[in-house]
Nucleic acid binder design. Structure first.
Lengths: 201, 201
DNA sequence: GTATTATATATACCAATGCACATATAATAC
DNA sequence: GTATTATATGTGCATTGGTATATATAATAC
């Protein structure tokens, strides 16, 4: 019944993070794809996003892999709920993955490619885009430091989550540092860019 | 002869960065796919990587799009070189793209998902992985601050590149700040993690 | 002498991602 | 009354990305 959808090479790799993120969330309690999307948006969205179709597809693959088992909950009026819970194999796989090395951060920043070639861009427009970029990350920083922090604070009041919440805070702190770094870099970039084009005003 | 391979929706989008990175590099001087891979590795690799097959495929698409024109240079013994140069359309497209807003940074850090669930990982192993992660970014930081800086310094001595090199430095500075931020976060993470598991030693 | 690396251009295939769309109902907002 | 949002599960298609492989030669390293 259980078909290995990932070949052994990929299985040995470290790139199945969406599946593992889902395993991690389902471990807390059995849940549906729709609910998982919501959980995602309120927890690990800041460093991993996923769309609903992606989640549903991955859940199906994980079921074939026997990392999950599903139970159909019949509802009247609404579509039936497909409630997933983690299996023994799923727990083992999550455990295995958690003990693997930390994956390096993929650096794919097309905005920075634009900055690299910005000498040929319109100075006024570029300045505006830098400001907009800066403000986006300042807003994100505010969100992380208020709303996101509140979510974690509330969740950590659950006594079982006491130790766990230290790691939630730690990962959220990464997002905060990242956003802060970007805002600071933008300020520096704006200063340098505006200096270079001062005479042309 | 010129076939629009990207539909109008994608064309209006902002995601064709590999093509635009290539346009930016080819604008300096006509070159081949093989050479472009090398240029990539010595310039914008720190925020955009590409494999050779990807570069060749994209160049073919860009030729169909008429952003580039190709000339075959016959060589004895070695395979013929396909030398691409930028067209008027290519220059216009590059210009258009450079004046578009800066794309937000895609936050997809599976390492941070692992940190989020790290409470269930083996504390000793996790500690080791954090250290390895930290050392990787410390080495990268050293590379950016020495070798990478030297590449930019040398390139900027070309008198035409005087203004341009300010933007090279600015984009490289982003990489430096990023690596620094990660090392600092790791130090904090190691401190907190080790404190939490001190009693178990 | 043998193995590797550099030069040079690709194709095939698989995995991951994202957007649009399909289907269906209930509750709420205006 | 109408529109939107929330609940709930998917399919289809296009793009992007990465690895393996094919082909061919010259130079260098051991």
């Amino acid at each position: 019944m259980c078909i290995g959808i990932y070949n052994t090479i990929r299985m040995g790799g470290l790139e199945l993070s969406l599946a593992h993120a889902l395993l991690g969330l389902i471990r807390y309690h059995p849940t549906t794809g729709y609910q998982l999307k919501d959980d995602f948006d309120h927890s690990i969205k800041i460093f991993w996003n996923a769309t609903l179709p992606q989640i549903y597809r991955t859940l199906n693959q994980m079921e074939s892999q026997c990392w999950l088992k599903a139970e159909i909950e019949i509802q009247k009026g609404k579509p039936n709920r497909k409630v997933y819970s983690i299996t023994e194999e799923g727990l083992e796989e999550l455990q295995r993955w958690l003990n693997e090395p930390l994956e390096k951060i993929e650096q794919k920043y097309s905005a920075l490619v634009k900055v690299f070639f910005a000498n040929k861009a319109d100075p006024e427009k570029f300045s505006g885009h830098l400001e907009e970029f800066r403000n986006y990350y300042e807003n994100l920083l505010n969100f992380y430091e208020t709303d996101q922090a509140e979510i974690i604070r509330k969740a950590s009041q659950d006594s079982r989550a006491c130790l766990e919440s230290e790691y939630w805070k730690l990962s959220a702190d990464f997002g905060i540092r990242m956003a802060k770094m970007i805002v600071e870099w933008c300020d520096e970039a704006l200063k340098i860019h505006n200096n270079l084009h001062e005479e042309s005003k």
